[in-house]
């Protein structure tokens, strides 16, 4: 399997999906770092793992469900305490799509 080389455009695309603004120097550096990480994954992919199911969870047991019981959460004052621009009732956010 050949190594994957991320192009600067791919790095910018991923950055825009993650809402990250990168300058050209960062694009170049992160391109190198991401390529190296993908290369590491490729090394794993070369192992004989065709019969191994994907390990999505470290815990082998299924079904950690909770019963449907309501309890009160955080008081509103506390919930709003860390908001940068709260109103008396809620979290104010900037206009969207302006």
């Amino acid at each position: 399997m050949s190594d994957v080389e991320l192009t600067p455009d791919e790095v910018r695309h991923v950055a825009s999906l993650a809402r990250l603004g990168l300058d050209d120097v960062e694009v170049e550096r992160l391109g190198r770092e991401l390529t190296s990480i993908l290369g590491h994954v490729n090394t794993i992919a070369q192992l004989p793992i065709a019969d191994v199911p994907p390990t999505k969870h470290a815990n082998p047991h299924g079904d950690a469900l909770r019963s449907d019981v309501a309890r009160s959460g955080a008081p509103r004052q506390e919930a709003l305490a860390n908001a940068p621009d709260p109103t008396a009732e809620g979290f104010r956010v900037p206009p969207i799509g302006a």
């Binding site: 449907d68 019981v69 309501a70 309890r71 959460g73 955080a74 919930a79 809620g90």
Partner: peptide
């Protein structure tokens, strides 16, 4: 129509005062 939310125990109730059924999980 459950009593609590999907992934936390906050009440699943329509029409309450804004941000009164919230917790660290659903925030």
């Amino acid at each position: 129509a459950t009593a609590s939310k999907m992934f936390c125990g906050c009440p699943n109730r329509y029409g309450d005062e804004p941000n009164t059924n919230v917790c660290m999980v659903c925030l």
